[in-house]
Amino acid sequence: MSTPVDLDPLTLERQVCFALAVTKRAVQAVYRPLLEPLGLTHPQYLVMLALWDHEKRDPQHLAPLSVKHIAATLQLEPATLSPMLKRLQALGLITKTRRAADERSTDVELTEQGVALRERALSIPEAVIARLGVGLDELEELRRLLTTINAAALAAGSL
């Protein structure tokens, strides 16, 4: 007994995972030429966004971010994050220091150059929106929906 293609639950085009995977690659390709002048890859850009958010919330630099905190924020394994941090440090955008109270923990802070890079990055969101040709309302709704799906996946034990 055959199933019509449009009802077949294993049709590639009906798979949420496929739609997410190809969209992720396509959107990252939109970011690539915008990030190249900043010397950043897309994953490094996400790390910088997390650090810039923290900088904005804690302008007095009272509490640096730990590698574990950044990894949790970005939903990455610390081992995946570590090479990105090494590269950002080599670029002079961050510093990494072992925490005195617990040498197993490493703190990450922006350098002056890392703080200044934020100004150059301010045009990226607007440029992405322009290149995608999708309205801000649609993108906000998509972000909201993806956040909901991510939360459901996390609750289901995906990470």
Results as ranks from 00 to 15, higher is better:
E77Q: 14
L110A: 05
A130I: 04
G92Q: 09
A151E: 10
E119P: 01
C17T: 11
T23N: 14
K24T: 12
T148F: 14
V22S: 08
A63V: 14
K56N: 01
N150T: 08
L142W: 09
R131N: 05
T95N: 09
L132D: 08
L20Y: 13
T11I: 02
A72I: 09
T148H: 13
T148W: 12
A100L: 13
V134I: 14
P125A: 10
T3L: 15
T80N: 13
T23F: 06
L76K: 11
G133H: 00
T148P: 03
L35R: 00
R131L: 06
G133Y: 04
C17M: 13
L91R: 04
R131K: 14
L117E: 00
M84S: 06
L7G: 01
P9W: 09
L145A: 15
S66N: 07
L51G: 02
T73L: 12
A50F: 03
A19P: 03
D107E: 15
V67S: 01
E126F: 04
D102P: 01
D6T: 11
R104K: 12
R25P: 01
M84F: 14
L117K: 03
V27H: 00
L117V: 01
D6K: 13
L76T: 05
D137L: 07
P64S: 00
E109D: 09
R87L: 13
R98K: 13
T23G: 08
T147M: 09
D58H: 08
T106K: 04
R87A: 10
L145Y: 08
A26F: 06
A116H: 07
A90E: 14
A19V: 08
E77S: 14
L34S: 02
P43N: 01
I149A: 10
R87P: 00
D102M: 03
D107Q: 12
V16G: 12
